[in-house]
Amino acid sequence: MSTFKPYLSAIEAPSLADVQAWHGLTLLEFGTEWCGHCRAAQPLITQALAAQPHWQHCKVEDGPGRALGRHYRVKLWPTLVLLRDGQEVGRLVRPAAAQDIESAMSKA
């Protein structure tokens, strides 16, 4: 069992309108619990968020027909969409190092 925060299901996930209404900095993560790439990225994301505590983190389970993932044109997992006040300001796909995530977050 994972010690990491679970992905929000299709029922729990925010709508696009919800996301666009968010204030501040948010790391919106798309993936699934069973994805090996997503599992491997969890410690990296946790480390990056620890270094950037002013960021919120929202994990959304993605899959075919999921409206939020389609809006952001998610093709590979995990995809990290960096948001400032609900608007995309950066993106990382399958990050390989916490430093890459931290760098993108510091530029947002």
Score class of each variant (00 low, 15 high):
residue 3 T to V: 12
residue 3 T to I: 12
residue 4 F to G: 05
residue 4 F to M: 06
residue 5 K to D: 13
residue 5 K to F: 06
residue 6 P to S: 04
residue 6 P to D: 01
residue 7 Y to E: 00
residue 7 Y to Q: 00
residue 7 Y to C: 00
residue 8 L to S: 09
residue 8 L to T: 01
residue 8 L to V: 03
residue 8 L to P: 04
residue 8 L to E: 05
residue 8 L to R: 10
residue 9 S to W: 02
residue 9 S to V: 01
residue 9 S to H: 04
residue 10 A to F: 04
residue 10 A to P: 01
residue 10 A to E: 15
residue 11 I to E: 15
residue 11 I to G: 02
residue 11 I to W: 06
residue 11 I to V: 12
residue 11 I to K: 15
residue 11 I to M: 14
residue 12 E to N: 09
residue 12 E to G: 07
residue 12 E to Y: 03
residue 12 E to M: 07
residue 12 E to S: 12
residue 13 A to N: 09
residue 13 A to D: 09
residue 13 A to M: 06
residue 14 P to S: 08
residue 14 P to L: 08
residue 15 S to W: 03
residue 17 A to L: 15
residue 18 D to C: 11
residue 18 D to I: 08
residue 18 D to S: 14
residue 18 D to Y: 04
residue 18 D to K: 09
residue 19 V to E: 07
residue 19 V to F: 12
residue 19 V to Y: 09
residue 19 V to A: 10
residue 19 V to R: 05
residue 20 Q to E: 13
residue 20 Q to Y: 05
residue 21 A to Y: 07
residue 21 A to D: 11
residue 22 W to P: 02
residue 22 W to M: 13
residue 23 H to S: 15
residue 23 H to G: 13
residue 23 H to Y: 06
residue 23 H to I: 09
residue 23 H to T: 12
residue 23 H to K: 15
residue 24 G to M: 14
residue 24 G to F: 08
residue 25 L to E: 11
residue 26 T to F: 02
residue 26 T to A: 05
residue 26 T to V: 14
residue 27 L to N: 06
residue 28 L to G: 06
residue 28 L to R: 01
residue 28 L to V: 03
residue 29 E to C: 09
residue 30 F to V: 05
residue 30 F to L: 11
residue 31 G to R: 01
residue 31 G to H: 01
residue 32 T to A: 00
residue 32 T to C: 00
residue 32 T to P: 00
residue 33 E to W: 01
residue 33 E to L: 01
residue 34 W to I: 01
residue 35 C to W: 00
residue 35 C to G: 01
residue 35 C to S: 10
residue 36 G to V: 03
residue 36 G to N: 07
residue 36 G to C: 11
residue 37 H to N: 13
residue 37 H to K: 08
residue 38 C to Q: 03
residue 39 R to M: 02
residue 39 R to L: 01
residue 39 R to I: 00
residue 40 A to R: 11
residue 40 A to M: 07
residue 40 A to N: 09
residue 42 Q to S: 12
residue 42 Q to E: 15
residue 42 Q to K: 09
residue 43 P to Q: 11
residue 43 P to D: 08
residue 43 P to R: 10
residue 43 P to Y: 11
residue 43 P to G: 10
residue 44 L to T: 03
residue 44 L to N: 05
residue 44 L to M: 15
residue 45 I to Q: 08
residue 45 I to N: 08
residue 45 I to G: 04
residue 45 I to L: 11
residue 45 I to D: 12
residue 46 T to L: 14
residue 46 T to I: 04
residue 46 T to Q: 15
residue 46 T to V: 13
residue 46 T to F: 10
residue 47 Q to F: 03
residue 47 Q to V: 02
residue 47 Q to I: 02
residue 47 Q to P: 05
residue 47 Q to A: 14
residue 48 A to Q: 13
residue 48 A to T: 13
residue 48 A to M: 12
residue 49 L to P: 09
residue 49 L to S: 07
residue 51 A to S: 14
residue 52 Q to G: 02
residue 52 Q to C: 14
residue 52 Q to R: 11
residue 52 Q to M: 12
residue 53 P to I: 10
residue 54 H to T: 14
residue 54 H to G: 13
residue 54 H to P: 02
residue 54 H to N: 14
residue 55 W to L: 09
residue 55 W to N: 04
residue 56 Q to G: 13
residue 57 H to D: 13
residue 57 H to I: 06
residue 57 H to P: 06
residue 57 H to G: 04
residue 58 C to E: 14
residue 58 C to A: 14
residue 59 K to I: 01
residue 60 V to H: 01
residue 60 V to L: 06
residue 60 V to I: 10
residue 61 E to Q: 15
residue 61 E to S: 12
